[in-house]
């Protein structure tokens, strides 16, 4: 079995676990054993997903082109899916709330399913990517993205609770959601900063300038500034609730554009 086949299995396992989670919410009470088991299933799938990434690393060495599985769109999508799943599990552990996991899992499924559309073969590493900075840069950036994704999921649910009290009574309390929106952004912001710094260090080493206003660089800075504005609005001006939730959604759109949209603009990151 190849890691690609394993990823396909993992993708549908995420979909299945989402369905199981939703059934658990409908038929049983919160904190019931059914829901706990559904969560454990997600943890197992996430571990399998992590194993699949490591397995692809080993496979690449067997093919004689050994490199970390973070070198093209397929591999980065698989890794992005894994970081989101990990972030959701972290949210569940920190805030003891299952609903955010259930609501976030479809995002993981969509990210993983989109890997079916791109070339999944293991290619050798082009000269520009042959650097030890690759792992540090990609891992920190995607963990940051995952934090923002978790914040986005909570922000959307928060905005839904405002939409109608009918919906609100089935969702976690607004105060908790607001807290998740904020704390996920704090973690994501720190990781994105480190990701931008490692990227700048790498660029300085490879191209001789730590910043060259390449579209991906610029968009990561735009994302950074939007979340910096989020933190200042919240910490210094006391914004919370729907206004910070809106900034979180806006920031997530910037994340998506940084990741996908930029590929349609010319630049140095064209291999992602």
């Amino acid at each position: 079995m190849t890691s690609t086949a394993l990823n396909t299995f993992v993708t549908f396992a995420y979909l299945t676990s989402t369905v199981i989670y939703l059934i658990a919410f409908v038929v049983s009470s919160p904190k019931s054993r059914f829901i706990q088991r559904a969560f454990r299933l997600v943890v197992v799938i996430c571990l399998l997903h992590g194993f699949s990434i490591l397995y692809r690393w080993i496979e690449s060495y067997q093919l004689g082109v050994g490199h970390a599985p973070l070198s093209n769109l397929y591999e980065s999508l698989v890794f992005f899916g894994w970081t989101i799943a990990t972030a959701l599990i972290a949210v569940r552990v920190a805030f003891h709330n299952d609903f955010v996991v259930a609501a976030g899992l479809p995002t993981v499924f969509i990210v993983m399913a989109s890997t079916f559309l791109v070339d999944s073969s293991i290619r050798p590493l082009i000269p520009a990517l042959q650097s030890n900075w690759l792992v540090a840069h990609v891992v920190t950036c995607f963990l940051g993205y995952a934090g923002f994704t978790a914040s986005f999921v909570a922000a959307v649910m928060f905005l839904l609770t405002l939409a109608s009290p009918m919906v609100a009574q089935h969702l976690p309390p607004a105060k908790l959601l607001d807290e998740i929106v904020y704390r996920s952004v704090v973690i994501g912001f720190c990781l994105l900063s480190v990701g931008i710094i490692t990227g700048a260090a790498w660029a300085d080493h490879a191209w001789g300038s730590y910043w060259s206003w390449d579209p991906k660089e610029t968009w990561s800075l735009i994302t950074w500034m939007v979340y910096a504005a989020f933190l200042h609005a919240r910490l210094a001006r006391g914004w919370s609730g729907h206004r910070t939730a809106m900034i979180s959604v806006m920031g997530f759109l910037c994340v998506l554009f940084t990741y996908f949209g930029v590929n349609y603009l010319p630049g140095l990151h064209s291999y992602f």
Binding site: W213, P215, T218, V226, A233
Partner: peptide
């Protein structure tokens, strides 16, 4: 002012791309 500058810089950067 910091909030305004952050948003202004973000919009200016978008223009540049």
């Amino acid at each position: 002012l910091a909030l305004f500058l952050l948003f202004a810089l973000a919009i200016a950067s978008i223009l540049g791309t």
